[in-house]
Amino acid sequence: MPGTIDEIPITPINTTNSTAVKTGGWRAFRPICDTDKCIKCWSCWKFCPDVSIAIGEDGPIYDYDHCKGCGICANVCPVKCIEMIPENK
C-alpha cells in the first residue's frame, strides 16, 4: 500500500478490488453442498450476501476465501442439500 505523502493520492481514491480482502477467516460454520441432492435452483447463489457462491456444473461452488458462514444458503435451499459444519471439526 502506498505510504508517503508523495505516493498517496490527494484524497482517498479507492481502486483496489476488495476481493483481495479474505473474509473467510470470519467463518465459524462451513457450508457443504451435497451435489447429488442439488436441484440447481440457484437460490443459494441468489441470496448470498458475500457473493461467495459460483454457479458450477453440479451445484454451488463455494469461495471459502470469502464466505463468512452466515448460513443463508442452507436456510433458503428448498431441498436442504446444504449443511453447515463447524469449522473446528
Binding site: 478490488n17 476488495s18 476481493t19 483481495a20 480482502v21 479474505k22 473474509t23 470470519w26 440447481k40 440457484w42 447463489w45 441468489k46 441470496f47 450476501p49 458475500d50 457473493v51 461467495s52 454457479i55 456444473e57 469461495d63 476465501d65 470469502h66 463468512k68 458462514g69 452466515c70 448460513g71 443463508i72
Partner: peptide, 30 residues
C-alpha cells in the same frame, strides 16, 4: 446444464466487503 437464473448474473459488488454475517444491506446493494 445452463443455469436458469431469475436475476442478472453480472456482479457489480465483489466479495471481501466488511458487511456482517447475513447482512441484508449488502444483498440490497447487490
Amino acid at each position: 446444464m445452463m443455469a436458469k437464473l431469475t436475476i442478472p448474473e453480472e456482479e457489480l459488488m465483489s466479495p471481501g466487503h466488511m458487511g456482517c454475517l447475513g447482512c441484508g444491506a449488502t444483498q440490497a446493494m447487490r
